[in-house]
Structure formats: C-alpha cells, structure tokens
C-alpha cells in the first residue's frame, strides 16, 4: 500500500481488519501476521507494505475496538518506530514478515559494558509491555539503545496488571549479550514516542467507539419503568455527550496520524493534543458505559469492565493527559520559571 493510499483503500483495509477480528481469532499475533499487518506501516525497503501512519492507525483502532491482546501493539507502536528512526535493517525485515515480535523498555535501570567485542547489559527493566512474550527487547541506557534477544534474558517476572490484555513484565538482565542499535537514543526515542502516541490515540478511539456502541445498543434494548432506557433524558443526553467526545477524539487522532504522514513538524503538538483528549474521552466513555449498563455492567461476565481496564491503562501508559498538556504548553510558549 503506497503512501498515496486512497480513501477507498483505507475503507477496504478497515473492513478487512474488522472482519478478521470479528471472526474471533484467539491468537492475535498469528492473526496479525496472516493479514500482513506487522509490516503494514513499514517501508517497502524493509519488506513492509509501505503504508503510512494513517493506515496503521486504522489497524490500531480496529484492534482497540475488539480489545485484542498479543504483542502487536508493542511491536508496531513501540519497537518499530524506534528501529525505523534508528535506521535498523536487521530486525525490521523480520518484524515486517511477522517472524519476530519486539518491544521497547520505557523504564530501565541498566548498565552496558563492552566485553570482547560484545556489548553486555546488566540491570532491571520494569513494566515492559509484552515483556514476557516479545522476541526482541529494546533497552535504552545512557545515550545508547540496545537490542536484547528474549532467550538472553536471565529472569522475567510477569506482573499482575489491571488490564490482562496488556501483559507487562519485569525483566532482569545479567550480562546479557546485546546488539547496539543506535548511539543517538535520545533523538530516536523522542521521535518514536510521537508515533507511539499516534498509535495509542487510534487505539483509544477504537476502544471508545466500542464502549459507545455497546452503551447505545443497551440503551435501545433495555426496559425499565415501562420504557426503553435510552428514551430517558438522563441516559440519552449522556450518550450524546459521550458521542460528541468520541467524535472529537476521532478527529484528534486522525489529525495526528495525518500530521505524521504529511507534516511531521506539527507532530509533537498534534500527538500531544490527541493524547490529552483521547485519554480523557476514553476513560469517560468507559466509565459511563458501565453506568448505563447498571448491575449487569459490574459483573465479570459482561465485557464493560475489560474496556474500562484498557482505558485506565491507556490513560497513563505514555504519560497522563496533564503531562501531555504540559508538553503542549511548552510548545506553545515556554514558561519563564522552572515551575513544573
């Protein structure tokens, strides 16, 4: 898919992903590989499909809507943008082919040493997304960024998570052999983070849309006091406000994905706007979806809480809305003092 993909191409992509997801594949990694989605956003030179952020966003949105698990998010939203920015040629082709999954460490306390021509990492990485599953783990330390292969990790502790479909792990490294990916980790990570924000915003839009659809459908079907509950203004007006927030979230996420393709200079601002808005909108709609459902909404069997869990994870994963607003403030007009 070229970067000049048409609206029709995108609609076809969306329909294909949605159908595939709706078929209920339990192994999300295999599903994504089968559809060729791991390489969708990667350049053709790496064996990817050459799609842009707008196409990848469609996949993240549809995956979010279905609350998929697997390592697709960590691989395509976290690791691939880093490898792309670093000019990697080793891992990307294998990622594009769906042979290898990867992740990025956001919270590392690791030191690197060079020993007989081999870099070796020692230390601990906390809350690594898909850290127990990914084949390749990207680890920043100082100004450098390394890749460690899963087999070389000495200890992995799967963490308990609010959102079980977003597994996280603590990774311990003990002189693990590592490959140096870049010595300019600062710039690479900063750029990759913007793309991760775009992907997460798209996912949030998908999750929010699912919540809204669920709430609206229930409000049309459920009777209380001899009336369909969606005819009560308390429910109707709430759903309208949520629909408005989700509509604006969709616009914000799309504008950020568009900037990633067409106007990267605006990406720092637009990715922060998208995150600031989408995180709050999603938490709101996920909470109110439970409320609209009433008693059934607080049972384990009903999916509402799983969306709520994802929403809460997403609100903090790449920085809170307040932190993104701080970034925006800094971009609009730096503060004179150092007040945080």
């Amino acid at each position: 898919m070229s970067s000049a993909a048409t609206d029709a191409d995108r609609a076809a992509l969306r329909a294909a992903v949605r159908d595939f997801v709706a078929a209920g594949e339990p192994d999300w990694n295999r599903a994504a590989k089968e559809l060729g989605l791991f390489g969708l956003g990667l350049p053709e030179s790496t064996g990817g499909a050459g799609g842009g952020p707008l196409e990848l966003a469609i996949v993240h949105e549809e995956f979010g809507r279905a609350l998929t698990g697997g390592s697709f998010f960590a691989t395509t939203a976290l690791a691939a943008p880093v490898l792309l920015a670093a000019g990697d040629t080793e891992f990307l082709p294998r990622i594009a082919a769906g042979e290898v999954t990867a992740t990025l460490v956001l919270d590392a306390a690791v030191t690197a040493e060079r020993d007989a021509g081999t870099w070796r990492l020692t230390g601990r990485c906390d809350r690594v997304l898909s850290g127990a599953d990914a084949d390749v783990v990207l680890v920043p330390t100082g100004g450098q960024l390394f890749a460690v292969v899963g087999d070389d990790i000495s200890n992995v502790v799967a963490l308990s998570t609010l959102d079980p479909s977003r597994p996280q792990a603590r990774i311990e490294l003990d002189r693990a052999p590592a490959r140096l990916v870049t010595t300019d980790a600062g710039a690479v990570l900063a750029s990759a983070r913007l793309h991760a924000c775009v992907a997460l915003a798209a996912e949030q839009v998908g999750v929010a849309t699912a919540c809204l659809d669920m709430a609206v459908a229930y409000a049309k079907a459920r009777y209380q006091f001899g009336r369909v509950i969606g005819s009560f203004q308390a429910v109707k007006h709430l759903l309208v406000d949520l629909a408005t927030e989700v509509e604006l979230a969709r616009s914000a996420a799309e504008e950020a994905a568009r900037a990633a393709t067409e106007d990267p200079g605006r990406l720092p601002l637009l990715s922060a706007i998208a995150q600031a808005w989408c995180s709050e909108a999603l938490v709101h709609v996920a909470e109110e979806n439970i409320q609209v459902h009433g008693g059934i909404g607080v049972t384990w069997e009903h999916p509402a809480h799983r969306y709520f869990r994802r929403a809460t994870w997403a609100e903090s994963f790449l920085g809170s809305p307040a932190e993104h607003r701080r970034t925006i403030a800094q971009l609009l007009a730096p503060q004179a003092s150092n007040s945080t």
Binding site: L248, A252, E254, I273, R325, A329
Partner: peptide, 24 residues
C-alpha cells in the same frame, strides 16, 4: 498567569478543546 501551573493547565485545556473541535 502562564507561570501558574493550574491556570496554565486550564488555558491549555481550552486550547486542546478548541483545536479538537476545529479538527472535527
């Protein structure tokens, strides 16, 4: 007022809301 973190956040909230409506 921009140096006051709470007022600044309030202003940025409005900025974000305005931009997001504009995008829509």
């Amino acid at each position: 007022a921009w140096e006051d973190p709470l007022l600044r956040d309030d202003v940025v909230r409005r900025y974000v809301e305005g931009e997001v409506i504009r995008f829509a």
